[in-house]
Simulated scan of single mutants.
Amino acid sequence: MASKRLSRSDTTPAGRLDEARLHDVLGYQMAQATIVSNAVFAEQVGRPFDLRPVEYTVLTLIVENPGGSQARLARALAVTAPNITMWIDRLESRGLVRREQSARDRRSQVLHATQEGIALARAATQRILDAERQALAAHLSAAEHAILLELLHKVACARGERSGGG
């Protein structure tokens, strides 16, 4: 029996293994793409700024949504309150965010990024965007990149529909 000749689109990006039915599984393809984005993040932000992906995400969401609560962040990221508290504690100890008592509800705290946190989030985001464009330029046109981002956002929005709100 002759061996089947696999095309590049039928095999894993590295290792040249036959993907078979995995090729059509969204989660598998997202996991493979995450390998690329994690490498870009580690090189451009993780090591240079000593930030984990979740810390970058939390910081950036605080920068973009000043005065928000820890509970709202935890809901947005689908994590527990203790986890979000731990990550905010780390960012606060680095002087990147601060907690303040809410003017509307004195029992709760609101979150704000410091000037250093704002500058770090903006610099990190720009480095990620530039490096992702460069890493993907040989594989995606600018239009395809924009479509991919829009489609991934639509997939993420299905979370709210599946969980009854999000």
Rank of each mutant, 00 (worst) to 15 (best):
44 Q>P: 00
115 Q>R: 13
120 L>D: 03
100 E>Q: 09
70 Q>W: 07
1 M>L: 03
59 L>M: 08
103 A>C: 02
79 V>T: 15
18 D>N: 06
81 A>G: 09
123 A>I: 05
152 L>V: 11
123 A>K: 11
127 R>M: 07
128 I>G: 00
140 L>N: 00
13 P>D: 03
103 A>E: 14
1 M>Q: 05
110 V>I: 13
162 R>G: 00
96 L>M: 00
151 L>K: 10
26 L>A: 05
139 H>F: 12
1 M>S: 11
108 S>E: 12
130 D>C: 04
64 E>W: 13
75 R>C: 06
79 V>H: 12
15 G>F: 10
90 R>W: 04
19 E>Y: 03
14 A>Q: 11
22 L>D: 07
56 Y>S: 06
121 A>Y: 06
107 R>P: 00
108 S>Y: 06
87 W>C: 00
151 L>E: 11
5 R>L: 13
83 N>E: 15
137 A>E: 06
49 F>C: 04
47 R>H: 11
41 F>H: 01
120 L>Q: 12
12 T>F: 07
125 T>I: 00
28 Y>C: 04
87 W>V: 03
132 E>W: 10
64 E>F: 09
25 V>Y: 10
102 S>Y: 02
160 G>L: 05
17 L>C: 03
55 E>G: 11
106 R>F: 11
62 I>R: 14
149 L>G: 09
104 R>G: 04
139 H>E: 08
157 C>R: 12
81 A>T: 12
105 D>N: 11
86 M>T: 13
117 G>L: 06
30 M>D: 07
54 V>A: 14
142 A>R: 01
27 G>V: 02
68 G>N: 15
57 T>L: 15
12 T>R: 03
14 A>L: 13
86 M>Y: 14
92 E>C: 01
3 S>A: 10
109 Q>W: 03
7 S>D: 12
101 Q>L: 05
97 V>D: 01
84 I>C: 04
151 L>A: 10
111 L>K: 05
89 D>S: 07
102 S>K: 01
129 L>M: 11
33 A>G: 03
151 L>G: 01
48 P>C: 12
95 G>K: 04
